[in-house]
Design a protein around this nucleic acid. Structure first.
Lengths: 341, 341
DNA sequence: TAATCTGTTGCAAACGTTTGCCGACAGGAG
DNA sequence: CTCCTGTCGGCAAACGTTTGCAACAGATTA
């Protein structure tokens, strides 16, 4: 049924090896022969069978991309960028969704292992040991998690959190809430640590609420709790939660940013569609996807690549405003220096 | 390096064919032998090589999923549902993004053809002829498009559009705008036709603005044009455009739904996060994804499956309100009957 | 007792490629 | 005319499976 290398060989009067070489090592075949083969191949509609090729070369030209939740708007831009970038390098991408379940995550890596040249693990929820084990079966690049010895690309949420907290302090807020993300998330720990350190250094109070599933519902549900703390500013694990909170506060008649300031993380497309527009820490997700693909693909040549950190940017929009205290302007530099060490 | 069927055979003292059968036809091997083989396989960490299996069986246990734009929030729920459903049936999914480009679309189908058992084509932008050609290379199931003889699952946007227009007419609007979607979209044509017919039957006016790229920017950019028409209600190709328009109108001080009513299509997650909450036609995208996978996988057994139409639902929220005319309540039934034929 | 059947296993070919090796041939140098 | 060198293309093995066929043993039937 399908046209194979053999059909092309027969039709153009050469041996199959010549056809093979025409495609995989063109310089080894006489230009004249080559063009003849190419012509008949084109005419017959021949396309190399990648599975067969993979069998002998050991390279599938496929990669796997495993994310916690495809429907979480944080991921699609990353998936899109990774896929486009991979395709440009003639790789196809398996995308899989773990539903935030570490067990499924591990199963997926194993199932995909034989079929890909490597796997991109986005914000994995597995334990370090687990990942350590899996990397022996298949090359891995991790996104948004740092594990010694493992190639990784992380977005520097710590820095982003620091900036965001400084922004809030600078506006005169002294009591903040961190609306935490899911258990097992490296990002969550980073944010919490950085935000905590920054607040502490400035003598401000930081209340942590969580852990929470990273969806808008939990953000909305947290409104009461947030108001209960008496804090005047909230920093959320992601934009989804921030937006949920934002709307929930407004629905209760709380003015944002008049009474409470809200900051998110990620800068998903919707953070600008909501009113007030959300102040947030922009994550370079597309760049992360591309970088991770690059690291995975060069993995074979030299040893495992290193760890790349991408900077994040605080984007100040309309969901943050002056707090009840004097703007701690002078404080900023001091605190920044303090925290940076 | 990787452990093969041969290693297992050697370690358990049987022939490779027995090992093979242990996995692919267990009933053909002695229970005792089977458990012994299974044990050593487990111990050695053997996993069948799908590429090799595919080579001989002709079934890859992979499917392709091609969408116009992964980052368009319409698609992720569909991708997620399809992937999860496919995986439950032991299939892996290649996801690819065409960036709304019909050329890329065709290339992708060809590139993926040899590597999958079938491809899901979501809202393709190619011509019917093009698709007709490609279906000879690989089994295809199309989503959101109707092509005679080709298995398809469509969401009945025509019905949704009808309902939405009737809703608007019932509220007392007599001049509507349809903010059109992209050229080449079957869905766009369906909506336009259904909305046009319904409006005409009721003696109302429908102005079409477009075609447009289906993103929020074009919705926002259309605000001036919409106001220029003097219409009091707008029906948009999708929620993204509706939301863009919504915010843009509000930014100009136009009250929604006081002065202008806005209706979207899709019911993406954000339509409920925006204020006012968006009235929209809910599309069963997850169900569509699952159904399409089912159709693709049973494709082999009997002939090409038929065409499935999924119903859509108008969800009335807060972006639509009374228009300047008397509510055309009595009209509704009459018009509905008229339009239904 | 011979013939037949059933259940279990081994053998080997096949799937569509790639690739190391070798021979054929041409042209240049001696 | 011989030898050498280099280019081109054929041969065949290999990749990890599946599967039709045959072999064999033991059980069943006539």
């Amino acid at each position: 049924m399908a046209v194979t290398i053999r059909d092309v060989a027969r039709a153009s009067g050469v041996h199959i090896s010549t056809v093979s070489r025409t495609f995989s090592a063109p310089h080894l075949v006489n230009p004249e022969t080559r063009s003849r083969v190419l012509a008949t191949a084109e005419q017959l509609g021949y396309r190399p069978n990648r599975a067969a090729r993979a069998l002998i070369t050991g390279r599938t030209h496929n990669i796997g991309l495993i994310v916690a939740d495809i429907a979480n708007p944080f991921f699609p831009p990353l998936i899109k960028a990774a896929e486009t970038h991979a395709r440009r390098r003639d790789y196809h991408v398996f995308v899989a969704d773990t539903d935030e379940d570490p067990i499924v995550e591990a199963e997926l890596v194993q199932a995909l292992a034989k079929q890909v040249d490597g796997i991109l693990l986005c914000s994995p929820r597995m334990s370090d040991d687990q990942i350590e084990l899996l990397r022996r079966e298949v090359p891995l690049v991790v996104i948004n998690r740092l594990i010694t010895g493992l190639p990784a690309v992380v977005m520097d949420v710590g820095q982003g959190a620091r900036e965001a907290v400084l922004h809030l302090l600078g506006l005169g807020h002294r009591h903040l809430v961190y609306l935490a993300g899911p258990r097992g998330s490296w990002t969550n720990r980073e944010i919490r640590r950085a935000a905590g350190a920054t607040a502490r250094a400035a003598g401000a109070e930081l209340t942590v609420l969580g852990p929470n599933q990273p969806v808008e519902e939990t953000g909305a549900a947290a409104a009461e709790a947030v108001l209960g703390t008496g804090a005047t500013a909230v920093f959320a694990y992601n934009d989804l939660m921030a937006i949920g909170l934002l709307q929930s506060l407004q629905d209760r008649g709380v003015d944002v940013p008049g009474q409470v300031s809200v900051v998110g993380i990620d800068d998903i497309a919707y953070s600008v569609l909501v009113r007030p527009r959300l102040t947030t820490v922009a994550n370079p997700t597309a760049a992360a996807g591309r970088t991770a693909v690059d690291m995975l693909l060069q993995h074979g040549d030299d040893g495992p690549a290193g760890q790349v950190t991408l900077r994040t940017d605080l984007i100040i929009r309309n969901s943050t405003g002056p707090g009840p205290y004097a703007p701690a302007v002078a404080l900023n530099a001091e605190v920044a220096a303090h925290v940076k060490e």
